[in-house]
Design a protein around this nucleic acid. Sequence first.
RNA 1: GGACCCGUAGUCUAAUGGCUGAUGACGUCGCUCUCACACAGCGAAGGUAGCCGGUUCGAUUCCGGCCGGGUCCACCA
Length: 796
Amino acid sequence: MALDLHEMEKKWQDYWKGEGIYKFDVKSKKPVYSIDTPPPTVSGTMHMGHAFAFTQQDFVARYKKMAGFNVFHPFGFDNNGLATALMVEKKKGIKSKDYSRDEFIKIVLKGTEEEEKRMRAAFESIGMSIDWFLLYRTIDDLARKTAQYSFLDLHRQGRLYQKDAPTMWCPSCATAIAQAELQDREEESSFVYIKFETTDGEKIEIATTRPELMPACVAMHVHPDDKRYKKFIGKKVKIPFTGGRTVKVFANRDVDPEFGTGAVYHCTFGDLDDVEWILETNLPIIEIINKDGTFNEKAGILKGLRTGEARKKIIGELKKSGHLVKQEPIKHVVNVHERCKTPIEILTAKQWFVRYLDLKDEFIAKGSLLKWVPSYMKKRLDNWVNGLKWDWNISRQRHYGVPFPVWYCRKCGSVIVANEKDLPVDPLKDRPKGKCKCGSNEFVGEKDTLDTWFTSSLTPQINCKWVSDQKFFQKMFPMDLRPQGHDIIALWAFNTIVKALFHQKQMPWKTISINGWILDPEGKKMSKSLGNVIKPEDMVQKYSADSLRYWASLPILGEDVPFMEKELVAGKKFITKMLNAARFVSMATKGVKAGKIDKKKLLAEDKAILSRLNRLIKESTEAFERFEVSKAINPTRNFFWLEFADFYIEEVKTRVYNKKDESGKAAATVLEEVMWKCLLLLSPFLPHTTEEIAQQHFKKRLQGKSIHLEEWPKADKGMIDENAEEIGELINVVIAEMRKQKTASKKPLNTPVKKAAVVVPSLEKFKQAEDAIKRTMAVEEIEAKEGKELVVELQF
RNA sequence: GGACCCGUAGUCUAAUGGCUGAUGACGUCGCUCUCACACAGCGAAGGUAGCCGGUUCGAUUCCGGCCGGGUCCACCA
């Protein structure tokens, strides 16, 4: 086969683009099917996970289009994030802080054009049926406007509040971070035993990994049943280096008497437990760490130092003063910021929160309204919601991002939110219209930006033009499908659900499909640092886009799959097979009227294959309706290759070589019919190959400009015939047995056979199968007997 | 600690409460250049379905436990 697959694929990609095959038709009367495409970060590269997840989404999009829907298949680029800001800074050699926020956003939008172009080309190269006119970016005007409008709406609903609250803080990035941005890391550290003295002179010993927080110690905790410490409860303990400050000893059932010394000192804040305890005990907060990670004057002797240095210094001082008992090496898990891996601190800062903890039950209940594919993924959402402890902190102390549409009155401190007509605003540049209610017209704009998830959680509203086209929004919302990875159910899916419930009082989509991860061939995550990254473009180069798509279609949705190059080999072979079979069918059916099957003229093998075909159509359609794409392609592949190509084609060859007679004509119409229907069934998966074949050999079947505008085939139940299939099966089984014998006697398969003796389960059925067998295997005469076991003997 | 997923030939997988044929692919080994296809065809070898127990007339398939692999969440100062 001299066909260059890459040239062929490129040809059709260009054709589709030129003809606008995937354009969403706003005016169409067809029902809409809309997909809330995940916007990938504009890194410039499409990785294997993208290729996998997006093609899976594309299978559904293409199927739905054929099934009669007006498919809305948009694309978005995520450029509203730290990763993008850093990329642009690096590329341009600039610092975002040297620019106004508006300017920097413009720089980003301009500065990522190149990456967008490359990614778009990559997604086109795998045959995505995206309508690129629907492109959005998560930092563009529409996205910013939508996010700010969302803020205003939540504000109106009383769902927002500001609080000086314990906040997880990254001392390195100098920013607040969300629960979801935390990562666990096991660290080697030192477990420090420290001796304290009570005001009445008794000694109590604690163990800690955070001795440097001692100046922020506000209490001691012991277990109420711990005999060793009972007597301490209620007493006061002196804290060294604080000028004689004392703290009370509390009874606390959270304390594990077995761990450390069984006594805990409580600092504000060492970890999340400390936060809970402070709420229970109502103690004051002593904040000793600044937002930049340095210790402040309340830290006394540690002032100006950072955590690591402070820890060394305090240990030295404790040694000198005799408070230090011992140090033990310890491995423990610390919470680190996922981006920079710095252990987090807990500080207080004024932050905006979305109040939603009161709605946990509702989130879980409403989550069930969605169709989850696979269904067990719903539990991940439930699990997350059940574990939620804090409201959603939406403040980020970052320069780049979507700004809060908020000012504060310099005089009275009132919050002034932007007028929705003025969105998007940048409060650092723009000013509120009018005066504060206190009469002042001096304002301070909010410096913080919104959590990127605050914007990303609005992709359905962005796609459906919530803030710019009400009519369109009414028509489009809620969307039909959200495809996404299982790693961000707690983030993207959850937050999107939260937003839609607040803003629209309904779920953002009808179905959510969860795809798994692509791992390296050993089952490990692909990552640059491990050097095990396999690039999709290399695979496309080596095997073709349709081969890659074939590979992506096989795994069950939701499961993580190791990358297996041999599946691409198999895909390429399948494509070759299709091209060759199509060539044969095309030759054999020249001059035959397409789609005209005369049932009366059909022979046993024709009835069998048509029955199998229609059963297949039914099965494949049902699988697609359940979003189980692998169960749509697998039987189709098997049918096409193992039944149609391996048997049916061989069975009718002698008939169609002699097309003049009725039987030959009938076989030709069946060949044509089966081939065409298979093309349709496979077109969502192998859009290039099927288009090539359709345009080459099935012009007369094509209603429009592309096979991808054809209707999905409907199963003709009248064709499904159990009995015919049984005969067909018998034909195939006997042929297989004869092939075995010919191969065993080292004869070519077209060797004529004088006489064959067979033992078959039913003579009556065999009668109906006999002709086809004789023709296919070039057998002159068959002597048949009835018996349990199938036996075939050949005489040449 | 909580939740979830997975465990089928050398490798990766499919379907299935029972037809002593458990599917197919890749790989391996034979034979065949047979007029769609040697980037192929035909065929062969290869599995006590992780282990144990239960339900059942019957389990790879359903239930429970264990072991192993993985993911998410929460974590002891």
